[in-house]
Design a protein around this nucleic acid. Structure first.
Lengths: 160, 160
DNA sequence: ATAGTCAGTTGATAAAGTGAACCCTTGATA
DNA sequence: TATCAAGGGTTCACTTTATCAACTGACTAT
């Protein structure tokens, strides 16, 4: 766990696990179906020792699992766990932001197809009313676990 | 622009801008209403030279703008631009993930209230059918701007 | 005159990341 | 029996980033 993981903030928690350099791209590749160390290494161009370290940390965080796919010699591949698959909505939301604000020449490199059959841009919504949830439609308030500490100046009440 | 910004992948684009260490937390604080250099520095505990550099990069990326709020002496504060406010859905999706998978003792540090009046957990959906968009309900396919290069092994067609 | 505020800059030290080469187990080939 | 190749790493020298503390500069308030 790094220093972000110690902050009393769920964004910092998430960032501490999945926003280290390269990690979001490792997760994307695992989602897209790459499984093997050498595939990830080749696709991303990340140095191999760092890939080892990242996969270890993701495994420790319960986001990725290492599975032996053969014996003699033992060889492993990496899969997303449930927690890992659950990060996909955040990844595609980031992807939509990237498409919108750094328009690549020639159009978006990738598109999303929903199980309903439509190509779509993911939208973050409130499950009660179905309306969009964005900077203009939400308010963040202190929750039951609010505490003082780094990164909590706004929400934590003094003296708590 | 760092090496992620050069990849032909919208996730890498977004990561290159908003997933450098500390940056998501800077954006969160700006969304929550912190504006001034010293407030950010104190709240986060980030070193001041790195905060300077991060704000410069965010400004260059068009995510943050620097506004003089007084003359004599000139003093600046930082605001989210439209692109910056548009990253909020991704931030709260990450926050929901953090709440779900690293349950903090005492409950979540922060809660979200939607403009409809309800406290909610953000959901990523397909705008056509309204259904949830997650690892099990989406497919990623090559888009018009697909190209070969680092991080594109799965989607880009060989020979393109 | 002295102290304090704000928004940084400077510089020494420590931590992370890079790139290339090497290692180990094993199956296949010469 | 070499020896080659595949897969999944580890080691090491080097470069880049980050941290921490102190300092600067332009002012205002006392």
């Amino acid at each position: 766990m790094n220093r972000f993981g110690e902050m009393h903030c769920s964004i910092a928690q998430a960032v501490g696990v999945v926003a280290e350099p390269w990690t979001p791209l490792i997760l994307r590749d695992l989602f897209l179906g790459l499984r093997r160390f050498d595939q990830l290494s080749e696709d991303l161009g990340i140095s191999r020792n760092l890939l080892t370290q990242r996969l270890d940390r993701l495994q420790a965080a319960g986001v990725v699992e290492k599975v032996a796919y053969q014996r003699r010699p033992v060889r492993y591949e990496y899969h997303l766990t449930e927690a890992g698959r659950d990060i996909v909505p955040a990844l595609i939301t980031l992807m939509a932001w990237g498409d919108r604000w750094s328009t690549p020449p020639g159009g978006p490199p990738a598109l999303l197809i929903h199980s309903c059959g439509e190509q779509f841009t993911p939208t973050v919504t409130c499950p009660h009313c179905g309306g969009p949830a964005g900077a203009d439609t939400i308010t963040m308030v202190a929750g039951p676990g609010a505490a003082q500490g780094p990164g909590t100046m706004v929400l934590a009440k003094p003296g708590q």
